[in-house]
Computed example of a mutant assay.
Amino acid sequence: MPFFSIVIPTYNRAHLIVPTIQSVLAQDFPDFEILIIDDGSTDDTEEVIETVFGHHEKIYYIRKKNEERSIARNTGFHLAKGEYVVFFDSDDLLLPHYLTTLYEAIEKYPECNFFATKYQIATDGEVAMNEIKDLAEGFYDYRLLLKGSILGTMVCVKRQIPNFCPFPPEFNMCEDWIFNMLNLRENKIYLIDKVGITIVNHNTRSMANNQKAIEGRLKAMQFIKEKISFLPQEAKELTGYSYYFCATHSYIEGKRKQALIFWFKTIKNLGIQTSTILLFIKILIGKKLINKVRKR
């Protein structure tokens, strides 16, 4: 039985998945299996994986009908044999020490059911950190996620835990936020102050579609509110930052009227803050003009 099972759902990512798998195989912790859950790809994903990794003993390729990524992740979780399951995306990269870093934390806190490292974001060869970089190492619960999906799907889960909530099959946008919110209501996650993952930013990621991202965030917010009872201030924070997210994506797309509507809903819940003032100024000026000024 391997210690880790790495579950990688994929759909039409033949052009991206090879470096992802190679980054897992390059781990300095050897005790793992890789489960590639092909969610009915119509490109040459199967041929690419067979050609490059066909005889690798650690890799298991499972092809299924297209049911979207939440069900693909759940399928991988049910097929996993490892003591711990790592959810990973088919377009990102693990740093070589990632599994060792997790293992050391698990050995230190065996009572904990969820673990995560920090991550960096690579865009056109430039690597940067996100807001997670300033968080102290330690235990966190659902309150960490009131602003949004700061952890993403890059979490490590003990395979056999009570009251485990799988990925919501009806959601394929913000499903990571829902998954973490529901599970961290009853559990805590240990965040390790070490970067273990590189998220590769590209224009085919789901969040690149701004209107789809807005629709998904609003539906996820409503779903979470129906599933979890929040204190009044927690509910305001959850709602306010969801509208802030929507206002930001509206601004990025150049939809000023839509952005202002979401902005007013933001301040109704969060009040006037430096971040909301700056967003208001950006909305009024417009993204095109800001970009022109930056290019000068």
Results as ranks from 00 to 15, higher is better:
C156I: 06
E175D: 05
D39G: 07
Q211H: 13
N183I: 08
A220I: 09
A26K: 07
S275Q: 13
H97A: 12
E253N: 12
Q273G: 06
V86M: 14
T51L: 15
C156K: 01
F139A: 05
G286Q: 02
F32I: 04
A72C: 06
Y119I: 06
E67S: 12
A259R: 01
T239Q: 04
M1I: 12
F3W: 09
M173R: 08
V48Y: 06
M181H: 04
I62N: 11
R143E: 02
A208I: 05
I121H: 05
I8T: 08
I106G: 06
D43Q: 03
P30K: 11
K236A: 15
R63Q: 10
E234Q: 08
K257I: 07
H78C: 11
F230H: 03
I290T: 11
A122I: 13
K287T: 03
T20C: 15
P96T: 04
I214E: 01
S250E: 00
Q273L: 14
K227S: 09
P232K: 06
D91Q: 05
A259V: 01
E107V: 11
S229D: 02
Y60D: 03
A14D: 02
I189S: 04
D91C: 12
M181E: 01
S5V: 06
Y142G: 04
T45Y: 14
N291T: 04
K282A: 07
E104A: 13
L279Y: 08
G286M: 09
H97P: 01
F179H: 10
N180D: 02
I283L: 08
V18M: 08
F171Y: 13
K287I: 14
E131R: 14
L102T: 00
V127N: 05
P2Q: 04
E33N: 07
G216E: 02
D44P: 01
H78T: 11
R143S: 08
K133G: 03
S23W: 12
R296T: 03
K292I: 13
I150K: 07
